[in-house]
Design a protein around this nucleic acid. Structure first.
Lengths: 206, 206
DNA sequence: CTGTTCAGTATAGTATACGATTATTCGAAT
DNA sequence: ATTCGAATAATCGTATACTATACTGAACAG
C-alpha cells in the first residue's frame, strides 16, 4: 500500500467520523507532519478526494471541506438511491457469512461514530457485488454527507429509526429476500428527507 | 485554472479521443516534458483520474490504462443508465438555446473523434441539470469506455444507428418531451449491448 | 475613529534532486 | 542457440528547496 493510499484512507476515515467540519481548511504541512511524510503524497491523496468533490482546491489557498446546500444533499441522495439498490441487488445472491457478520458487527458496535458504523454496514452488504467503481463512488458519497449527518444526529444518540431499518434489511439479506432492496430504498428516502430538512432549517453560513 | 487542472483536462481529452490505448503505460516524465511542467502536477492529475478508475497506479511501475472486461463494461453502463436519465430529466425543463445548439453542433461535427463528439452531445443535454457530481462521474465513465468504443466503431464510420438515436433524442429535447428520457435509456441499452458483445468476442489479452 | 497601504509571515504550488524499484541489455555458461 | 545473472539504464515515489500568492497586523492618512 503506497503512502498516498494510506493518507487517503486516513483522511477519508476522518471525514466519515466527522472529524473534519465543513468549511475547514486542510493544512498540507500539518497533515504531512501528522502522518510523518512530506507534502507530496498528502497533496496527491487530497487530489484523489477532490476528484469526487469530497474537498475542493482553491487556487493558492489550499483544500477546503465544502459546505453542503440542501440541493447538494438532494443530488447526493439521488445518486445513492440510484446506485446502492443495484449494488445490493447484485450482492444479494452472493452474500457470504463474512459479509453478514460484518454487517451485524457494524450494527452492534455502539462505540463507533454513527456515520462510520453506517458506512461499515452498507459496505458489508455491497462489497460482494463485484462493482468496485460503484462501491467507491458510494463510499465517497457517504463521506460527503457524514459531517452533516453527525450534526443532525448528535444529541439524538444514534437514531433508533435508522437502526431498526438496518436490522430489518439485514434480516431480509440473511434470507436472500429481494425485498431487502426496496427496504433499502425506503431507508435511503428517510435519511434523505431528514438531511434535507436539516439543511433547509440550518442553512450553513457560507 | 491550475496546472493540475490543465493536465487533467489534456489527459481526459486524450482518453476520450482514444489516444491512450488500454494497457498503455503513462510515462510521467514524458507527459511532463510534453506539457512543459514537472512531474508533480502530472502525478496529481493522474491521481485524480485514478480515483475514478480511469487509470490505475501500480506500485513502482506507474500508471496504466486498465483493460476492460465485459463485466467492467456491464458495471459502467449500469451506472450510466442509473445516472444519465436522471441528469436529463432534471435538465429537460431548464434546457437553454445554448445547450441545444451545443448538442446539435456535436452531432454535426463529423471531424471530431466519435467518442469525443458523443460526450459533447450528452454533456450538452445534461449540463443544465445542476448536478455537478453526477455530471463529473458520467464524464469519467464515458472516458473509461472510450478506448473500446473507438475500437469497435472504427471501420464502421461513426455508427449511423447511434447518430439517428441522438437526433431523435435532441428532437424530443427541443420540445421538452419527457419521452426523451426513455429514448435515452434505450440508446444506452443499445450502446451497452454493442460494447459487451464486442468485449466478449474480443477478450483483451490481459 | 475608520480606512488604507505596506511590510512580514504563512501557506500553497511547482521544480529539482535523489534513493529505491523495476526493466533491459549483454556476456558467459550450459 | 538458449538461458541465466549481473551490470546498466529507465522510471517511479518522495523529500527537500524555492517561488509565488494570499493572509495579518501595524503604521499612517483622512
Amino acid at each position: 500500500m503506497s503512502t498516498v493510499d494510506e493518507v487517503e484512507t486516513l483522511v477519508t476515515g476522518a471525514m466519515l467520523r466527522g472529524e473534519l467540519e465543513p468549511g475547514a481548511w486542510l493544512r498540507q504541512d500539518e497533515l504531512a507532519r501528522r502522518f510523518g511524510v512530506s507534502k507530496i503524497p498528502v497533496r496527491e491523496a487530497l487530489q484523489r478526494l477532490a476528484a469526487f468533490g469530497l474537498l475542493r482546491f482553491e487556487a493558492n489557498r489550499g483544500a477546503v471541506i465544502p459546505r453542503l446546500t440542501a440541493d447538494d444533499a438532494e443530488e447526493i441522495y439521488a445518486l445513492r438511491r440510484s446506485i446502492e439498490p443495484q449494488l445490493l441487488k447484485r450482492a444479494l445472491p452472493k452474500l457470504s457469512i463474512v459479509d453478514l457478520a460484518e454487517a451485524e458487527l457494524a450494527l452492534r458496535s455502539g462505540d463507533l461514530v454513527p456515520t462510520e458504523a453506517n458506512w461499515s454496514f452498507h459496505r458489508a452488504l455491497y462489497q460482494s457485488s463485484g462493482w468496485d467503481r460503484g462501491l467507491r463512488i458510494v463510499e465517497l458519497l457517504h463521506a460527503a454527507v457524514a459531517p452533516y449527518v453527525i450534526l443532525y444526529t448528535e444529541g439524538l444518540g444514534s437514531a433508533p429509526r435508522s437502526d431498526a431499518e438496518h436490522a430489518d434489511i439485514l434480516d431480509a439479506c440473511r434470507h436472500s429476500d429481494p425485498n431487502a432492496v426496496t427496504m433499502l430504498l425506503r431507508h435511503l428516502d428517510g435519511a434523505s428527507n431528514a438531511l434535507e430538512r436539516f439543511l433547509r432549517d440550518h442553512p450553513s453560513s457560507s
